[in-house]
């Protein structure tokens, strides 16, 4: 299997491992959550086309395995660096990013809820953890920006106005009656 990672994939590998090592020694709660959500699971992430397969095992200690990905394999977490920047900066919420497909997730509901809890946990810890902030700064500085960032973003777009809005639902589907 060829191991020719792109520069961005290499950066992600360093950051993922640094993230695990940081929370392993500094945050018992998030580390517990990480184990609960990821052990014996496998996921392919795709950020701006940088694709990696992540899996986790626990023999003597928790270990994150990172492998290269076959070109035809389907990713189950797809996003762009700029969208992640928007979520971390808080110009849009995580919920908004997911509901507008800025973060595309595929998986069993239980796994998706687990990942959601883990990400929210990291967002909560970030402001009070200099290590997590430094890690994010490293991503932010080194990851290419694809969207011009000159525009001031109106905070009205920060949130999803309502979940399950029926505006986009086809009228035929809306009128389906379900009887038991």
């Amino acid at each position: 299997m060829p191991n020719s990672y792109t520069e961005q994939e290499q950066l992600l590998i360093v950051l993922f491992q640094a993230l695990v090592n940081d929370i392993r020694y500094s945050n018992n709660f998030i580390f517990g959550l990480l184990k609960e959500v990821t052990l014996s699971k496998k996921v392919i992430v795709d950020i701006d086309g940088a694709r990696l397969e992540l899996s986790a095992s626990h023999n003597d200690q928790y270990t994150l395995h990172i492998n290269s990905v076959d070109a035809l394999a389907h990713a189950s977490f797809i996003s762009k660096g700029d969208y992640l920047r928007e979520v971390v900066a808080g110009t849009i919420t995580l919920d908004h990013a997911i509901s507008s497909n800025k973060i595309l997730l595929k998986g069993a509901l239980e796994d998706l809820l687990g990942i959601y809890r883990l990400v929210v946990g990291l967002l909560v810890e970030g402001p009070t953890s200099p290590h997590l902030r430094a890690l994010w700064d490293s991503f932010d500085k080194n990851w290419p920006q694809t969207v011009p960032l000159g525009m001031l973003i109106d905070l009205d777009v920060q949130q999803v106005s309502d979940y399950f809005t029926d505006l986009d639902v086809n009228a035929e589907i809306k009128n389906v009656e379900i009887t038991y």
Partner: peptide, 14 residues
């Protein structure tokens, strides 16, 4: 209501 951007904005704005 909007929360001033910063990481906690993503967490609390629902």
């Amino acid at each position: 209501i909007p929360i001033l951007p910063g990481a906690l904005a993503s967490v609390f704005s629902h």
